[in-house]
Design a binder for these strands. Sequence first.
DNA 1: TTTGGAAATGTTATATAATAACACATTCAC
DNA 2: GTGAATGTGTTATTATATAACATTTCCAAA
Lengths: 171, 171
Amino acid sequence: MPDTSIPTAIAGTRHDHSRCISTAMTTARSLCAQKGVRLTALREQVLHLIWQSHKPLGAYELMEQLARETTRRVAPPTVYRALEFLLEQGLVHRINSLNAYVGCTHPRQEHATNFLICRHCGVAIEFASVPLESSLQASADELGFIIEAHSIEVVGSCKRCADLGGTSHEH
Amino acid sequence: MPDTSIPTAIAGTRHDHSRCISTAMTTARSLCAQKGVRLTALREQVLHLIWQSHKPLGAYELMEQLARETTRRVAPPTVYRALEFLLEQGLVHRINSLNAYVGCTHPRQEHATNFLICRHCGVAIEFASVPLESSLQASADELGFIIEAHSIEVVGSCKRCADLGGTSHEH
DNA sequence: TTTGGAAATGTTATATAATAACACATTCAC
DNA sequence: GTGAATGTGTTATTATATAACATTTCCAAA
């Protein structure tokens, strides 16, 4: 099991990621209880693995890690079903441009999927912006389009990587 | 070969799509000549097929249509390489949420990939918005993120489908 | 006009991502 | 406890994309 006690970078800022994870797990449990849906052991384990990674995690990477943690064999449907549940509950997001999954930082609010994705370190920073949403709405209105959902995926350099000079690196 | 002379709906408005296609092809040819890159017969054929469809086209659908038009066998790399070229030249866009490709309506300008996608009829409407871009930039600035590219994919109902009552249908 | 190298395409195999279909197990309300 | 609903296991398959190498085409310099 990876050490989660080291401060690591998420959302481009230094922080103790182990706290981050435990908060997310607590929130998830209470949210599921509230909604009357079952956050089973498997689903919780998958959510935990996703949160442990500071990068979006692919379904097959997730499968491998799951197989490593448990003894039993883990087949694709196992993780995909867990992911489906977590997506439905708004506990994780899917990054379409990466075919990868990442924990949602504020699952209590209704919101869209907006991410800044660093090309260098791979971090995916979730963000929200009222002006952004309203200009999007304005564009849709002009064309008579009714918005149901949307996703914004921005690729570039996060602050840390930009400061370090834009050379390829991990952190 | 599908009849392209019938007015069909793209970008949510009625128009003669055959004109649309021929304009796109002419622009593509001159743009490639300008840049000194080769719009080969195959690439042109792929671009044409993409434009003929009023919905985003998957790579394998494209393969089938290509195989139907030509006699020779068409393998995945053939279409993927053509797509790669067309994407590089900004002549087509990839819709990540659909794994599908669509013709770019204004390949001369530098711009992002912003689409309104109708859940009912499948049409993908490209749009641009200055306020949208600037609020996105503002969000990135706040976090010290340097934007290199972005894509916005909005799902909902286009005007036609909304007017028709939101029931499932094609047009 | 030849020719040689770059670019494009063909070909075969394989990697990666996701789902279908059905069997078995667990949970929970009655 | 029982049975219906929900969740998980298992096997097979579909869908999407790329790697690696062979062959062809094109174009520019000799």
